[in-house]
Computed example of a mutant assay.
Amino acid sequence: MDILRGIRVVNLALNLPGPLAANRLAHMGAEVIKVEPPAGDPMELYSTAWYREMAAGQELVRLDMKTPEGQARCGELLAGADLLITSNRPSVLTKLHVDWETLHPRFPKLCQVAIFGYPEPRGDVAGHDLTYQAALGLLYPPNLPRTLLADMAGAERAVSTALGLLFARERFGRSCFAKVVLSDAALEAAAPLRYGLTRPGGLFGGGSPEYNIYPAKDGFVAVAALEPRFRERLFAYLGGVSTAGELSTIFASRNADEWERLGEEVDIPIVKVLAAEGT
Results as ranks from 00 to 15, higher is better:
182 L>G: 05
67 T>Q: 03
200 P>M: 05
224 A>L: 08
83 L>K: 07
130 L>C: 10
141 P>E: 13
73 R>P: 00
181 V>I: 11
148 L>F: 11
58 Q>P: 02
241 V>D: 10
254 R>C: 15
159 V>C: 10
158 A>V: 02
253 S>G: 13
262 L>V: 14
215 P>I: 11
227 E>N: 09
65 M>Y: 08
35 V>L: 04
270 I>N: 05
98 V>I: 13
256 A>P: 07
240 G>Q: 04
107 F>E: 11
256 A>E: 12
32 V>R: 02
273 V>Q: 01
138 L>I: 01
7 I>E: 06
52 R>G: 01
184 D>G: 03
125 V>Y: 14
128 H>A: 06
72 A>P: 00
258 E>N: 03
210 E>D: 10
54 M>N: 10
222 A>D: 06
143 N>Q: 09
183 S>F: 11
86 T>V: 14
271 V>M: 04
100 W>E: 10
183 S>T: 15
199 R>W: 02
245 G>H: 10
89 R>D: 03
3 I>D: 06
136 L>E: 10
90 P>R: 03
113 V>Q: 05
179 K>Y: 02
22 A>L: 06
181 V>P: 05
51 Y>K: 08
6 G>Y: 13
119 P>C: 11
187 L>P: 05
82 D>V: 02
67 T>I: 10
162 A>H: 01
113 V>A: 04
251 F>H: 11
153 A>W: 00
174 R>W: 12
46 Y>I: 05
41 D>K: 08
251 F>S: 03
203 L>C: 08
277 E>V: 04
